[in-house]
Design a protein around this nucleic acid. Structure first.
Lengths: 249, 249
DNA sequence: CGCCGTATTGACAATCCTCAAGTAAGGTGG
DNA sequence: CCACCTTACTTGAGGATTGTCAATACGGCG
């Protein structure tokens, strides 16, 4: 029983996220509970749709590795990307309100995710108030991020908006070591950036060019390299607070 | 001790919100806890700033009566209104993340609010998992609303955006009987609408005129009367689900 | 090799913003 | 009661930003 692990399942006790200084660790009781709470692991390819708008998913997920994005679409196809999910981020909590998802989630890279049963949330709240508080904390944090995005899309110019988004993504990737090879490059297309910024793809391209001309970023074969994150944040007038010891489930 | 109530404090046992069918009721134990959790009541005039961006408030609030709005501002004064708070809505939960508020809240009308101590949240989570779940539910619901707002500002045209916002506000006001005199008129200025829509005030005015020309709304002395909420929702292509029995604290 | 997805660029059009001026209603002080 | 504020709403004109269309380039992949 010692080193036998036929399944692809990562045991929570050796969860790599726990070692990351960005996250707070569990105590023994919580760890034990989480191990039981986790009912499986999902591995998907890039492009896979993990949750669909309008569906009733019985699951919650935590990203173990890889990157996903949440989005909503209007009937005629216009799409708005709401946020990105990186290792440690929880997916699907919004569905607990009516049960029906009001946004979709798609994998931007190959991913693995921890699987939880929504129906067992109740026992989490009953038995582990600390973890329950963490859940609320996580939801409140997402709210703050959405607030900032709203400010950005509503009131910042295209250039400021792009600068904010790239600085935001840089911080997010950097905090969880999500940069694949150590270099600050994220694997994103201009189509995705434009759907996040609420801009057309052409105008996004021209805006990115301006940022590149100022040596703030560099566009690579497939992705965007961040050269000067502080410069980007300065353009957007965005205060950049480093997060440490944030909870995750 | 029977009918002696020298203070302006509304006792939770006679809280008018509990009678509203939009909200779910508490059980006896929860009611008792909430009565202790509530440490005061705040009454403010229109225009009062209840929470300020950058401050560390030790309080949470639930709106008892009146209307408020949450907003963020950029250094040069550009303002984005994020959402509105009506009776039953919780204010300040986002501040539990870092303690520091990242948005401000201002009273749109005279208001009264229940006052809670943030420091006592822990006991709520420990003693009343049901209420803790409600808190998470409330946060998740706010997320969904922000998601929809993001879609709106990012991807809808000015006309669609205005139609969505007015339909959204209509539903929100209607659900909690917040229309002062029974008529579907809310007391808002075009300046506030434009800061919610992410538009200039001039363009907001012209957009509202188009909606008025189509007999969907009527602009009154100080406020906006909604004539055809379904027509507004149709323009915005917005699905309109009625909420009942939602929790509040 | 040709096809597809992605990025790039220019020309032009639509949307939205800014400036400016004017109207209307309410409040205040003489 | 009226002159004089202030605030909010309107409207037109012109300009800046952003979107659409179209054509091209480039690399990956079957």
């Amino acid at each position: 029983m010692a080193s036998k692990k036929p399944q692809a399942r990562t045991n929570c006790s050796v969860c790599p996220l726990r070692k990351n200084e960005a996250f707070r660790d569990f105590n023994r009781g919580e760890l034990q509970f989480i191990e039981g709470f986790k009912t499986g692991e999902l591995t998907v390819d890039k492009g896979a749709v993990i949750l669909v708008e309008g569906s009733h998913s019985p699951h919650l997920f935590t990203v173990l590795s890889g990157v996903a994005f949440r989005y909503k679409i209007l009937e005629d196809g216009r799409r708005q990307i709401l946020n990105f999910a990186l290792p440690g981020d929880l997916i699907g909590l919004q569905g607990t309100v009516i049960g029906e998802m009001e946004h979709s989630v798609e994998a931007l890279t190959p991913m693995s995710l921890c699987l939880f049963e929504r129906s067992r949330l109740e026992s989490l709240f009953r038995e582990h108030p600390g973890l329950a508080f963490d859940l609320t904390w996580i939801a409140a944090r997402e709210e703050r991020i959405l607030d900032e995005h709203l400010l950005s899309i509503g009131r910042r110019s295209a250039l400021e908006r792009a600068a904010y988004l790239l600085a935001f993504l840089y911080r997010k990737f950097d905090a969880t070591d999500a940069f694949a090879n150590g270099k600050p490059i994220f694997p994103i297309t201009q189509q995705l950036l434009s759907d996040t910024l609420g801009l057309s793809i052409v105008h996004t391209n021209k805006t990115l060019r301006k940022l590149a001309d100022r040596s703030l970023i560099r566009w690579k074969e497939k992705g965007c390299e961040i050269i000067d994150p502080d410069g980007l944040a300065a353009i957007a007038n965005w205060d950049w607070e480093t997060e440490i010891d944030r909870p995750f489930i």
